Amino acid sequence: MTETTRAQPPAVHEEILGYYARGKEDARLREGGAPAGRLEFWRTQDVLRRTLPPAPARILDVGGGSGVHAQWLAEDGYEVELVDPVPLHVAQAARLPGVNARPGDARALPDEDASYDAVLLLGPLYHLPERADRVRALAEVRRVAKPGGPVVAATINRYAGLHDLLREERYFDPAQRARTDAASTDGRHGAEGGLFTVAYFAQPTEVPAEFTDAGLTVEGQYGLEGLAWLMGGVEDWLDAPDRREIVLAATRRIESEPTLLGASGHLLTTGRRP
């Protein structure tokens, strides 16, 4: 299907654009950010380095934000193209050596069919509450991936908000508890309360079916943070390089255990274009 014949998707929610225009996402994942964010970053890097084809391969980072992952991928020798709907993110990523950044929507990519060796979708599925939009984004990713090329998509787990608020003791606030309980019931998170923006929190079992409906072959699922992100002392562990490696290794041991996939805050699902 050509660019001119594909229908344009609805506009991205203004609440989502406003939330990320604050510029806090970059610091959340980098060194010095919150422990859960750093653990998410290191574990994402760990899984991707085992999943992606060797460099130099051409990678499309859809919804790649400020380029936190695109940066180290480029440093590893990959040719990285980044697409994001947030102007600030595009400007930040465009300053990174080896990264070509441009505005775009995951549901309507302008790229040619079969033009990338691997495609990453590490954020857009969070912010597509409607299943049809998520499948549409995955179908676009499938279209631009080369046959046999890997696709990696991230989702936020259904009970991540509940776990996070309990850990931070915000769950004791009645208003926060009501919003969190509602999101853990149907997965839909609103922008009220200011802690996050419009989002969808998925059950791990939902994602493979969406991959399949988009024409992708599912290969695996990886819980990123395991239970470590909920434990006291994790910040001290991550700040000590020797202990950090032990935490990462322990989390890797349980990353694909079906009974624990939903305990992580984030999940990576991997597949391929047949």
Score class of each variant (00 low, 15 high):
A94F: 06
A132K: 07
E112Y: 00
G190K: 00
P97D: 14
R95E: 13
P174M: 10
A202H: 15
R143V: 03
L125N: 02
V99H: 10
Y116K: 10
A118Y: 06
R102Y: 05
L125G: 01
R102N: 11
S115N: 07
Q176M: 13
R167V: 10
T155K: 08
P204F: 05
P124A: 09
A114P: 07
H163Q: 13
G161W: 09
A191N: 07
A94M: 12
L121C: 15
A191F: 11
V152D: 03
V141S: 12
D173W: 05
V198T: 14
L96Q: 11
R177V: 07
P147L: 07
A118C: 01
G190I: 03
R102A: 15
G161R: 09
L165Q: 14
G187H: 06
A118F: 04
Y159A: 09
A191W: 08
P150A: 04
P110E: 11
S115H: 09
R179N: 08
A183E: 12
H127S: 06
V152E: 00
A154S: 14
A94T: 00
D173V: 11
G190Y: 06
L109W: 07
A139Y: 10
N100F: 08
L166V: 15
A106Y: 08
T155M: 10
G194Q: 08
N157G: 13
R107K: 02
G194N: 05
A145H: 03
D133R: 01
A199P: 00
S184P: 11
T197P: 04
T197M: 02
G148Y: 08
A132M: 02
D133I: 01
T197R: 02
V99Q: 12
A137E: 07
L138H: 00
V135K: 02
H189K: 10
R179K: 07
G149P: 04
Y126W: 11
R170T: 08
H189V: 14
L138V: 06
L138M: 09
P110H: 09
A202G: 05
P150F: 09
G161E: 13
P103I: 12
D133N: 13
V198N: 04
G149D: 03
A139H: 09
L195I: 11
T185N: 02
F201R: 07
P124E: 10
Y200F: 15
L195F: 12
L96T: 01
V151G: 03
V151N: 02
Y200V: 06
R143G: 06
R95Y: 00
A199L: 14
D111A: 11
V144D: 08
A108L: 03
L122D: 02
G148Q: 12
A182D: 00
H127R: 03
A199G: 06
G194M: 03
D181P: 00
A132N: 06
T155D: 01
P150M: 05
F196H: 08
L166M: 14
G161A: 08
V135H: 06
N157E: 03
E192C: 10
R158G: 04
G123I: 11
R102V: 05
L165G: 11
V99G: 14
V141W: 01
D105M: 07
E130Q: 15
G161K: 02
R170E: 14
V144A: 05
G148M: 09
T197C: 08
Y200M: 12
R158F: 05
R179A: 10
F201D: 10
R167Q: 13
H127Y: 10
A153K: 04
